[in-house]
């Protein structure tokens, strides 16, 4: 039954994509990377629906995937507008920073211990001095090399 084998293949790949997107959504801290992880999860769901549609032999799975694409486009438009607004106001995309957004009348919530570990800073490597400095040309050199 070649179709069952193909369905098995598609379901396994879809499950892998869904789980990878979930791992990314759970563990990453960049807001845009979290949205990309959600899109990867949507890809996994689309593959599952396509596999079932192929197995059943009708086009219902394809119609569902088309709706998923439309909803993903709408979601990306609204979500990226929100992300852009957040970025313009805070200059950061860190969800750990966004988690402590509050209104004016609400006192800042105390953090539970150990919720936020300190982010490791960028490693500071020794740096070479910058090259490409503009050369200082003596004035008498321009007499016999006028192209300078």
């Amino acid at each position: 039954m070649g179709n069952a084998v193909l369905l098995h293949h598609y379901l396994l790949t879809g499950a892998g994509l869904f789980a990878l997107g979930m791992i990314g959504f759970l563990s990453r801290r960049n807001l845009i990377l979290m949205f990309l992880a959600v899109e990867i999860m949507l890809q996994g769901v689309s593959l599952t629906l396509i596999g079932w549609g192929r197995y059943r032999g009708d086009v219902d799975g394809q119609v569902f995937v088309l709706f998923i694409i439309a909803v993903a486009a709408a979601e990306a438009a609204v979500a990226l507008a929100l992300v852009l607004t957040v970025f313009r106001s805070g200059r950061t995309l860190d969800v750990a920073w966004l988690a402590h957004m509050r209104e004016d009348t609400v006192p800042p919530q105390p953090l539970p211990a150990g919720e936020l570990e300190a982010a490791p800073a960028s490693p500071q490597w020794p740096r070479l001095p910058a090259v490409g400095q503009r050369p200082e040309i003596p004035a008498d050199m321009t007499e016999y090399r006028p192209q300078l």
Binding site: L12, A15, L26, S27, R29
Partner: peptide
Amino acid sequence: EPYDRTSWSPLVSSLIGLALVGVLSACL
């Protein structure tokens, strides 16, 4: 950025995700 260089509990989240894959593939 510093927040690109760190993750929320990477071991637990990867265990959860791969456990999902394991359960689904075992069912299949």
